[in-house]
Write a protein that binds this DNA or RNA. Structure first.
Length: 387
DNA sequence: CACACGTGGGG
DNA sequence: TCCCCAAGTGT
């Protein structure tokens, strides 16, 4: 019995060679006329392409542009990245999110120095060994920088293809990507593989969009089965995400006699790994540890007394908290929602000397790397005088 | 495989 | 306000 290939298994009929040829021409003609001018399209330097691709992961083009320009200006060579201190990298990445991306890039840059003589590898399998580079990014860099016929299947490409071929596979599943890669292996233009991949992404970003999609405006509408069959509203199929969990923290901005504020370095795993936040006490955990909370909005006095006692016990630090919160801030992550009840406090004696604690003066805020939730707290406290 | 992992923009 | 979305990868 003959083994079915990936396309047959999923009931996908590939186009004829003639139709594939016409599609390539149509798509690339459109791309040549309509492509967006983007800074990383002015180079074929694999390092710069790599930087752009990492930044663009789950991040919009407009957001990336200034970060990209600053990054390659500050670190123009792979060796600069490999040798840069983590604080420098995080400062360059501050506000972009998904901070493990830049940490992984440093690891990969060191890999490149060690395993590939400092030169970005051209071999697709080698590229895949680099930390932070998965199937999408490996395909993007090798096709764009080295003109290799590798698929680069991202969310755009899956959306475009699912509409062109009426594919009802769930694009939120990682396994689905393989099917689309197989389609691309048939469609990709061997003369201009990098442009072909980028053209598909540009099409997805500007015309074949998730919302406000008008298939009759597409340069490839004659190839679009879901347009011709008027089924385009069904595609792509994408399972909804599970909703976010909410957490409430008593957040303490503690100031000492030198006008410095106290920050705590977060654990190396988990949300905002290794970054500074004010001392944040999870309300649920606090209760479970046996602290009696009186959660009355208009009576924070008892809570404040307990928090002062908690800080004395756990951080060995005597503080005097303001009796009312300075404000209540919210921050939404992709999967968590934080509510921060922010209190100001004074350190009565400066004897907290734990590894993970750091006093930082307001005048140094712009030199420090703070994740956005911390920035929000900083802004709140900056707006007035203490007590 | 499902979930963790940030942030800002838009309907 | 809420939900979805944006050039994914690691575990």
């Amino acid at each position: 019995m003959k083994q079915k290939n990936v396309l047959q298994k999923n009931n996908i009929t590939m186009w004829s060679e003639e139709k594939i040829d016409r599609f390539r021409q149509t798509l690339l003609n459109w791309y040549d006329e309509s492509k967006r001018d983007l800074p990383w399209r002015e180079t074929t330097n694999p390092y710069y392409i790599w930087v752009s691709e990492i930044m663009l992961q789950q991040t919009q083009v407009d957001t990336v542009i200034p970060y990209y320009n600053r990054f390659i200006k500050t670190l123009p060579k792979i060796s600069d990245l490999a040798e840069a201190p983590e604080e420098t990298l995080l400062k360059l990445w501050e506000g972009l999110g998904y901070y493990s991306r830049v940490r992984n890039m440093k690891v990969a840059a060191i890999q490149i120095q060690k395993d590939f003589e400092g030169k970005f590898p051209e071999n697709h399998k080698d590229v895949l060994t680099l930390k932070g580079i998965g199937p999408y990014t490996a395909g993007a860099v090798t096709s764009i920088a080295f003109n290799q016929t590798q698929p680069a299947v991202d969310g755009n490409v899956m959306r475009v293809l699912s509409r062109l071929f009426e594919i009802d596979l769930d694009i939120s599943k990682v396994s689905t990507r393989k099917v689309f890669e197989e389609i691309i292996r048939h469609l990709i233009d061997p003369e201009r593989p990098g442009d072909f991949n980028q053209a598909l992404m540009d099409l997805g970003a500007t015309i074949c969009t998730p919302k406000n999609y008008f298939p009759e405006t597409s340069p490839v509408k004659e190839f679009n089965a879901s347009y011709l069959n008027e089924t385009w509203e069904k595609y792509p199929v994408k399972k909804k995400k599970t909703k976010v969990t909410e957490k409430t923290f008593y957040t303490l901005m503690i100031k000492n006699e030198k006008d410095e504020y106290l920050y705590e370095k977060r654990p190396s795993k988990g949300v905002l790994a290794g970054m500074f936040t004010p001392i944040m006490i999870n309300q649920e955990t606090f209760k479970e540890q046996g602290w009696k909370l009186f959660n009355e909005e208009d009576d924070y006095n008892s809570i404040v007394r307990e928090l002062e006692q908690y800080i004395a016990e756990v951080y060995k630090l005597k503080i005097k908290m303001n009796s009312q919160p300075k404000g209540i801030l919210k921050h939404v992550f992709s999967h968590i929602k934080w509510e921060m009840i922010v209190f100001e406090a004074l350190a009565l004696e400066d004897n907290a000397r734990f590894e993970n604690l750091k006093w930082i003066h307001m005048s140094q805020f712009d030199k420090e790397m703070f994740p956005v939730p911390t920035q929000k707290v900083n802004n709140l406290v900056e707006t007035l005088t203490l007590f």
